[in-house]
């Protein structure tokens, strides 16, 4: 056992074939870590219900305002809460990177032949899966609380897709900020600064027509709102698929651009070492 075995694709430095395999390792590692901390799993599963039930009760009579068109508020709220979950999951994902950096795991991984993209994809797919689980819980709990989804399964699937794209974008942004800022305090501070306004500058919990005009304008540039609009439209009885696809396209574009910037941020991190 004295021979050194280095697979050919590694020794040539061309390792593209394993990008997906490596991404899957990182995803599984994250899931395993989550699974071994039952408290986190519980919080993750309970949080979407709390938001749905809390906001559902708090703003129950809001539908009496003009602009809601007399809908049931829980119907209105379900896609909004899914998007909120997507936003917060994404915004927190960078803390995973910071933990890796603090533990020295990031540096250890960076001196293996692994591609940086695999670390990003691993983080994205883990967070998108978490969001998928949470989103399904929101839809189920919403149904039990009396929400109806005239769009049926295609509508629900489209809503979850929109939320996953939203999470992917914010996850990349949060990861990039983690690589640039390198402390949890700075990352969380900046994330809070961004997430709450983005949530309130959208139609997640409030109908557009019931909000002041400047917020209506701002929300049309807000990816959180794109996810909410795509979801709400796809859940109607006869969706305008043009609107849905336009919003999904916007979300995909944002996710791609932020994903690219996230990968680039590794360069900045390594230059700082």
């Amino acid at each position: 056992m004295t021979t050194i075995t280095i697979p050919a694709d590694v020794s040539t430095g061309r390792n593209r074939g394993s990008l997906l395999a490596h991404s899957a390792y990182f995803t599984l590692q994250s899931i395993r870590a989550l699974w071994r901390q039952p408290l986190y799993v519980a919080v993750m599963l309970v949080q979407p219900m709390v938001w749905l039930l809390l906001f559902g009760q708090l703003f129950k009579r809001i539908v009496e305002l003009p602009g809601f068109g007399g809908v049931n508020y829980i119907d209105f709220l379900v896609p909004g809460v899914v998007a909120m979950n997507a936003l917060f999951i994404g915004a927190w994902s960078g803390t995973g990177f910071i933990e890796m950096m603090d533990r020295g795991i990031m540096d250890r991984v960076l001196v293996t032949p692994v591609r940086r993209g695999a670390i990003i994809i691993g983080s994205l797919s883990y967070n998108m899966l978490s969001l998928l689980v949470q989103g399904i819980i929101v839809f189920v709990v919403g149904r039990l609380s009396g929400a109806t989804y005239p769009g049926g399964l295609p509508g629900i699937a489209t809503s979850l897709l929109a939320a996953m794209l939203l999470t992917a974008g914010f996850c990349s942004m949060s990861n990039a900020l983690a690589l640039l800022l390198r402390t949890n305090e700075a990352l969380i501070g900046l994330s809070q600064f961004l997430t709450l306004p983005l949530m309130f500058l959208s139609t997640a919990i409030m109908a557009q027509e019931a909000a002041p005009e400047w917020i209506q304008t701002a929300s049309s540039y807000n990816p959180v709102n794109w996810a909410v609009v795509a979801a709400r439209e796809s859940l109607t009885a006869s969706p305008d698929w043009g609107t849905v696809w336009a919003n999904l396209g916007g979300l995909a574009a944002v996710a791609l651009v932020l994903g690219y910037l996230g990968t680039r941020a590794f360069g900045s991190y390594q230059r700082s070492l």
């Binding site: 280095i6 697979p7 694709d9 590694v10 390792n15 394993s18 395999a21 490596h22 390792y25 590692q29 395993r32 870590a33 071994r36 901390q37 533990r103 795991i105 250890r108 991984v109 293996t112 032949p113 692994v114």
Partner: peptide, 18 residues
Amino acid sequence: DPQATGRENLLLHGALYG
């Protein structure tokens, strides 16, 4: 990785070398 077992740590790390 503190959440992974000793063996899992070794297996994941080795997998990164293909």
